[in-house]
Write a protein that binds this DNA or RNA. Sequence first.
DNA 1: GATGAATGAGTGTTCATTCAT
DNA 2: GATGAATGAACACTCATTCAT
Lengths: 192, 192, 192, 192
Amino acid sequence: MDGTHQQRRRGDTRQRIQDVALELFAEQGYEKTSLREIAEHLDVTKAALYYHFKTKEEILVSIFEDLSQPIEDLIEWGGRQPHTLATKQEIVRRYSGALAGAAPLFRFMQENQATIRELRIGEMFKDRTLRLRDILIDPDAELVDQVRCISALFTLHAGMFVMQDVEGDPEAKRKAVLEVATDLVTQAHQGA
Amino acid sequence: MDGTHQQRRRGDTRQRIQDVALELFAEQGYEKTSLREIAEHLDVTKAALYYHFKTKEEILVSIFEDLSQPIEDLIEWGGRQPHTLATKQEIVRRYSGALAGAAPLFRFMQENQATIRELRIGEMFKDRTLRLRDILIDPDAELVDQVRCISALFTLHAGMFVMQDVEGDPEAKRKAVLEVATDLVTQAHQGA
Amino acid sequence: MDGTHQQRRRGDTRQRIQDVALELFAEQGYEKTSLREIAEHLDVTKAALYYHFKTKEEILVSIFEDLSQPIEDLIEWGGRQPHTLATKQEIVRRYSGALAGAAPLFRFMQENQATIRELRIGEMFKDRTLRLRDILIDPDAELVDQVRCISALFTLHAGMFVMQDVEGDPEAKRKAVLEVATDLVTQAHQGA
Amino acid sequence: MDGTHQQRRRGDTRQRIQDVALELFAEQGYEKTSLREIAEHLDVTKAALYYHFKTKEEILVSIFEDLSQPIEDLIEWGGRQPHTLATKQEIVRRYSGALAGAAPLFRFMQENQATIRELRIGEMFKDRTLRLRDILIDPDAELVDQVRCISALFTLHAGMFVMQDVEGDPEAKRKAVLEVATDLVTQAHQGA
DNA sequence: GATGAATGAGTGTTCATTCAT
DNA sequence: GATGAATGAACACTCATTCAT
């Protein structure tokens, strides 16, 4: 007389909203996903969403905050390490894992840059990216080497999504992407 | 009694629409740019836009077609060449130039991927990117080398925009980006 | 371990709702004040309001009933007196005091006439005002004298609020308002 | 084959919106009148309203500006006259006429004070009222006489609406109201 | 070559209210 | 004596698009 669909779901609506929203945001983009659509997928009314979140943007912010915490942690950790090659390689390695762990979010971020720029998470994301860059890049290095680091970052970010239509086992692809990124960072470090 | 601002502009409204639209699309994104806004910037009515273009999407398509013709040409040319390293390097070199020549468009494309995917130019762009990839990538190459080529492409695409907040002369930066991309393609070619 | 803010407040929530509601109604108007706002000011949930009052309107009605009882009493008293000038003057005098004693409520009533007209208290208030008028006005008097009485009433009502941006001691202003109202009623009585 | 309802109405939509809006605003209040309601009365869509006015508030502002121009003119005229009793009496006389000429607007203003205070016309109206007061009131006069002038103003404003449920010919009532207001101003002037 | 006027479908958001707990 | 979760109806407003002139 218990454990029904309805009952089990009580209390987890907030989480379900985030799940569905991220799915739809990643699939269709932020602007093209309406709150009506999210609500319908969850079989609740639009107003229910507003019980759990103050605005549409806040849904996105909450998803971002929840899912990108590991990356925040990683950057903080990286900031406290010496700027050696080994550290940089380790950062890249861990970053690759962190990105894979929140793939839908990062796919969304990459494909909705124009939108995100105007949103609160735009600042947060930009800030994070810059801190990450400052760890990897030596400001006195040659321009080419700076580009190599940026390229490494981009390769990691974009890798997953673009590789989707390349044949092959996902984990193998991730490894390959990681290798290229590591190479780039290593070359950049030695370049100078 | 002629040659005034008004008079000189007669006949070039279509072009002016494209210019303003691209500027706004690149700045704010496609969805967040309304036809009202475009019209106001041009000091004409929304209805005037519809004299020149059938839909909002068509404005974008026309911009894309006009500005990306050099790239279309490049890919066609590349397709007819032997798949040697020299060819690949030349492609990368020319591609870098072509991207720089239509920077606002490509910035727009990169920042509005989610939107573009649903639009006609999504197909066009994807198709082009795949043809370009097929020229650079040897399907029998190791996965890592395939990633290197993709990374080269991405470095070219993203390079310009991300590099904006790195200090240094724009042309120098473009050269650096080109060098990294060329390196990647070269390594990929030799890898096998 | 007792007598804390929390503890002392137990049991007086109903009263606190009325206080906060009146304050907000008077400040922002009835329609622009939402139950969410009232609840937040009290640090309870909206649902709590519904434990104490059946509807938003009932909150207002209860405030009106509680605060305007002295006026109800006055009018009843007035109805039982002979319609002499002395009675009229006494009514005006007492009315002035009664209004001052529930100033926020009457400020609210005056500034939200359109809203109130559709509410239950609209009828109550109108009814009261008419009974009051019938005591002051001789139906056979000249039109001008009737107007004088109505004007006296209005002067009393509006006096307090409009006088706010006139310099001077509040009690002095009330006295002045009362004097003018008394004059008007007196002139009206003698006019015929 | 012309002069139909549809045809004759083309071009006067803006005016019709103002008319219907004022009617509904005066009847039900500003907040309780929705744009849907206004649109339905006119047999157009809500969006059509937005072709003619930028916001709901702007509809109200435009009505206010159009209808209260005579009063603005009157106040300006009054500001240029010497502050004699005769001037004051003339102002009162003209003001009475001006109010009667835009009765629905002023009924609306009086019954929606709380709402108006937050709107742009709140400032405009308050500003006007103060300038009018400054013409009628001698700042060195006794407090009672100042009240008399304010009372005169209020009598004029409120007179019309409250008098609605007094029997008698409207013009006769207006005359009576005017007489009482003039008396008040005259007494105030001689008081000092 | 362009405008004035309008539409239909949609958006995000807010509200008073309900009810099981 | 109060909350957590939700609803249904409404709201002001915006959009791409149309079409007669």
